[in-house]
Design a protein around this nucleic acid. Structure first.
Lengths: 206, 206
DNA sequence: GTCTATACCCAGATAGAC
DNA sequence: GTCTATCTGGGTATAGAC
């Protein structure tokens, strides 16, 4: 691993622990094993390091589309199968050590970093919500859930539970139990999905 | 308002906007209209200002116990009435301008401030969850909800939705629509409570 | 590409006159 | 209680030798 890569990885480690403002260029340099002035041979500024981390994460996270026809097929195999398949796709991304760290970085920086904020809002909250609305509408057309239920409300009721688990982990419990969190996340949201589904499913559907 | 109070209030404003590390003593002094050295006649350090804000918030937030017998009476008037009463108690605290600001401050500082972190964990997450577990058990004993449902899971499914609305507001949308948020919070969580309740209620109960 | 040296700035905090 | 003046330390970043 060359020094540029080292700077990149060390910065992810430190920024995700202490936040962007809580880490100095000196600290990064010292952790890499070079002098701080050498950093500037690879990145033009501290902000430039942060930007490269942002770009990396956005790139990695936005190429995992779930094709709707596949979702439809999964849904025919029962709700539990369908849910597990969708959740696994998201978790496999998150499971990589680097992605967990950057996710925490995104959460903690979102309150004052406009770029992070708009990414979270668009790609991590609004995007999935719209995806779930499509799926609940699909369930309606398949006569799995009642016709009069509010699809938007249903999507939020379902999805925000998992979002809060993420917040809770990254702000309150991090970094203990990183692995345990990923395990529990699936089983907990699965039970929750069941609860939501049960509230609107048509009699006789499992 | 004397200068000590001014320092206190200005600090709440600035800390909640930019975070503790994002605000300098000079900024606070300038906003108050005095020199930074004068700050130290009222508070021994920047950290001391922060601590007094923490103490104030903890004091204000931890004297609003909901007596269980009252909750039981409310519950007999129907689930919707019961829920609205409980939620109003919490919202009336939050509605004060100062409390909204400090709540945001708590959220954004929680990732690296151990005191804030443990308060949030204990009093804002675990405490209410345990309260809701008591209430769902009460509903069980009143034969309102099914006997085989998981009360812990139910409490989380219910409560985490509202917690995420808080996170979303304070990190992503703040400070736009502060008032609108407080309005929407009640109606949104009410609908969500309905969804959760419907998934476990015994046939014939409203 | 890495180093030493340094510029420049702003932070938190203190001393002592008034 | 507030001021001016100042200390000390840490931050980002640059210049120029090797």
């Amino acid at each position: 691993m060359n020094n540029k890569e080292k700077i990149f990885n060390v910065s992810i480690d430190l920024f995700s622990q202490y936040g962007f403002d809580g880490v100095s260029v000196r600290q990064i340099a010292s952790e890499v094993g070079i002098k701080e002035s050498s950093i500037y041979n690879h990145y033009s500024s501290k902000q430039a390091i942060m930007n490269s981390i942002l770009d990396y994460y956005v790139e990695e996270m936005t190429n995992d589309e779930i094709p709707l026809d596949q979702a439809s097929i999964n849904l025919d195999k029962g709700f539990d199968f369908f849910y597990k398949a969708g959740c696994d796709a998201f978790l496999s991304k998150l499971k990589e050590d680097k992605m967990m760290k950057i996710t925490r970085l995104f959460f903690i920086e979102s309150y004052h970093n406009e770029e992070v904020k708009s990414f979270l809002k668009k790609s991590i909250i609004e995007g999935p919500i719209e995806g779930w609305m499509v799926l609940f509408n699909l369930m309606k057309s398949k006569k799995l859930i009642k016709d009069d239920c509010d699809v938007r409300q249903l999507s939020e009721s379902f999805f925000y539970y998992g979002m809060f688990l993420l917040y809770e982990h990254f702000f309150i419990n991090y970094p203990e139990d990183d692995d345990k969190f990923l395990e529990d996340f699936l089983t907990k949201t699965e039970k929750h999905a069941r609860t939501i589904f049960d509230s609107v499913k048509i009699e006789g559907i499992k």
